[in-house]
Structures are given as structure tokens and as C-alpha cells.
Nucleic acid binder design. Structure first.
Lengths: 209, 209
DNA sequence: CCGACCATGTAATATGTTACATGATTGT
DNA sequence: ACAATCATGTAACATATTACATGGTCGG
């Protein structure tokens, strides 16, 4: 059900078209939730049928139709009820870790490549999230500006605080992943020093029997 | 496709029934991959049709049938090819963060409850993962013992190393989440001190207009 | 005029959850 | 006997990915 609330949340900042939402889920918000347009358009219809949002058709240029959806009071109630719920932790699915723990079949070089790619991915991610976080702190993030427009200083500060907490957490996660992978690479070096040229992959051994 | 490889990986340690796999995915391995029996049984059939595993029927007691699946050489090749691939990072979906960033609509008390639940969840998780990690390091983890049985000291050490790296990473992630949430709780205290009784939820304000 | 982008949809397939369904074994 | 656990499946539904499909606008 989270797609539904990710959409409602975005619309609680400003009315948007499906296309806009798809872009949001690909940019800043994409670190926390992503969805493709093929998932968004049908969901918007369902939300409208449920009375949680209301669409209006506008035209761009001469003929190009655009449906802009706004959240309704009912929709806002639903959203508030959802965010107030205790978090529900879903079962974990971590393909990278599965790859890693079964990589004893593939050997140290494969693990090294895996960990190096891990560092690379999270360095990029950390930098991008940090950039967004800094924009927010500086009060220059367009959508956050939109969200706090017309609110009291206390509300303004509260919105900013929550965003900073969320983005900081993501930056820290990325930093952890980088540090972890680098430590793992050093442990791998240590392993190779100790067992030089004896660490052949198990599967190769099996294949050559 | 990861369910497929999570199963192949588990079977590369020892032949198992669907029921056994479902249990594995609920226990230790469940931190990295989980699946329910209704997903496992059909997947086992598909893996068998693809020639990656081979099932044999045994009987428990008088009548109770049990299908035990073993990985085939083709299956092992497939698994090795998969773990050797660079990691493929899937789009993020983090319902808790979505809840948090839109919680400016619900107020500080709601956020406090959210963060406290977060700490509670990750403390439990950290303790459980750490326990498993310690079992592995001590050489007392039954399935890891099974996996390294008959291997050279170098291979043995390599398997152990990878498991330690993986489980350590999960413990560290949990510790990060705990520290992050506790810091966020302090920041929330600070906020409340500063804006005492002005921090009413935005949605309440909207409702009472 | 043409390429990048705006804009909205559907279809087929893959993946994952919850509920329904059945029956045997083991230990107390 | 009875409860907990072993053991295997299907069905309905929800969620997510990839591919197919169409056409308009805007700036250079």
C-alpha cells in the first residue's frame, strides 16, 4: 500500500500530474520510494475512485492534455492516519548479501570486484543525497519551500527537521556501506597474504574433478 | 530472479526439502532473504524443470512424503555465474522514511513513537544477528559447518570470512539505525524545547479551519 | 524540421502475500 | 487424545518490471 501513500504525500505538497509524480520518484524522492509511470497512472485512477484525490484536465499548448491531481480532505486524513501508524518492517531481501555469502564458490577476485562496485555505488549515492540534504538545510530545495509556504515558523522548522533527519540517515547509511566494504577489502587482502595461491574457488575444484 | 539463487545457494550447502528451505528463509538466512512456502514450492518445480536441481522422494514414517532437492552440476555452474556478476542495485523502497518525511502532518508525538519503535526493532535485530555471527566465528554454526566440511583450510577460512563480513555488516547497519534514531529523538527534544506548544500538527490546523 | 522532452496510457510478465486446503508424525 | 510441528500444495490478490503504443510541445 505504500505507493498509494507516497503519492498522497507528494500531492500533499502540491497538486501534480502523473508525469510529475514519475519524475519525483526518479529524482530526490526516489531515494526513499521509486515507481514507474506504468504503476503510477493506474494508481491515480484508483485513488480518484476512492475519493482521496481529485483530477482536473488542463491543456498544454493546443491539444496536449494533462491531468493534474490534488489531494482531497479525505485523502489528507488517510495520509495523516497512515503516517501516524507505527512502522511496519517488511521482510528483508538483499540480493547483494546473498551473492556475497555464496561467493565462496567463486573466489577472492570475484569478491573483490563485488566490494569495489559496492563502494563505487554508495559513493555516488552518498554524494547525491548529501547534495539534496544541503539544499534542504539551506532552504533552497524547491519542493520543500513549496511545502512550508504559509506555515508558522514552528511548522516550518519541524518540516525541515524531519527532512534533515531522513536525508542524514541516508547519507550515513551510504557512509557505512563504504566503510564496511573498504574494511572487507582489507580483510580480503589479509586473507590472501595468509593463504597465498591456495584460495582457489571451490566450484573450479568441483568442475575439474 | 534472486529467489532462484537464494535457493540454489542454500542447496549448494546441502540437499533440502521445500519445508527446510522455508525454515531457512525464516531463520538465519532470513536476514538476507526471505520467502514463504507458497513461493518456494512452485520455484522448486521450475528449477527442476530447468535441470538446475534434482528432487528425490523419501518417506518420513509410514506415508508422509518428502521431496528432497539436490543441486546439479548445471545448477552449480549457474549459481557460480550469478554470484560472479557485479551487484545490481534495485530501486529503493523505504516505507518508514516516507512515513517520516510526511510526518510533519502528524506532529512531534507521532514522530517520537515512530523513532522509538525504530530503535526497538533494530535492537532486537542487532542482538539476533550478532548471536548468529558469534556462532559462525566460533565455528559452531551447524549449516556453516556443513558447508565447509571436507574443504581445505584456505577454503574453510574463506567461507568463514565472507560470512563474518556479511553478518558484521548487518550488525553495523542495525547499530547505525539505533544511533540515528536516538540522535533524531534528541533533535526532536531540542525542537520541542525551542517551540514549546507551537508545534501543532499541520493537518489538525487544516481540519479545524 | 528534428531531437529532447512532455504526457498518458495498456499488456504481458514476474514477484510476493495471504488465505485456503489437506493430511501425517511426534511427543506428552 | 491432542497439540505442535512436519510436509506439500493451490488460488486469489497485490505489487512491480519491461515492453508496447501513441501523440504533442518547445527550443534551436
Amino acid at each position: 500500500m505504500s505507493l498509494r501513500y507516497a503519492i498522497l504525500g507528494t500531492l500533499s505538497t502540491s497538486a501534480s500530474s502523473g508525469y510529475d509524480l514519475a519524475r519525483q520518484f526518479g529524482l530526490g524522492l526516489g531515494w526513499f520510494w521509486s515507481a514507474s509511470h506504468s504503476q503510477i497512472y493506474p494508481e491515480l485512477r484508483r485513488l480518484e475512485d476512492a475519493g482521496l484525490i481529485e483530477g482536473s484536465v488542463t491543456t498544454v499548448g493546443e491539444k496536449l492534455e494533462k491531468r493534474v491531481y490534488a489531494i482531497t480532505p479525505t485523502g489528507l486524513d488517510e495520509l495523516v492516519a497512515w503516517v501516524s501508524q507505527p512502522p511496519q518492517y517488511r521482510p528483508n531481501r538483499d540480493p547483494e548479501r546473498i551473492q556475497l555469502i555464496f561467493s565462496d564458490l567463486a573466489g577472492a577476485e570475484s569478491v573483490r570486484r563485488h566490494l569495489e562496485a559496492h563502494v563505487e555505488y554508495y559513493v555516488r549515492r552518498r554524494d547525491q543525497v548529501r547534495q539534496t540534504r544541503d539544499l534542504i538545510s539551506a532552504g533552497k530545495h524547491a519542493r520543500v519551500q513549496l511545502r512550508v509556504a504559509g506555515r508558522s515558523p514552528a511548522e516550518h522548522a519541524f518540516t525541515l527537521l524531519l527532512r534533515e533527519i531522513a536525508y542524514d540517515g541516508d547519507v550515513e547509511r551510504a557512509e557505512l556501506e563504504i566503510a564496511w566494504a573498504q574494511r572487507a577489502l582489507r580483510a580480503l587482502d589479509e586473507y590472501e597474504r595468509r593463504y597465498r595461491s591456495q584460495g582457489e574457488p571451490v566450484a573450479n575444484a568441483a568442475e575439474t574433478v
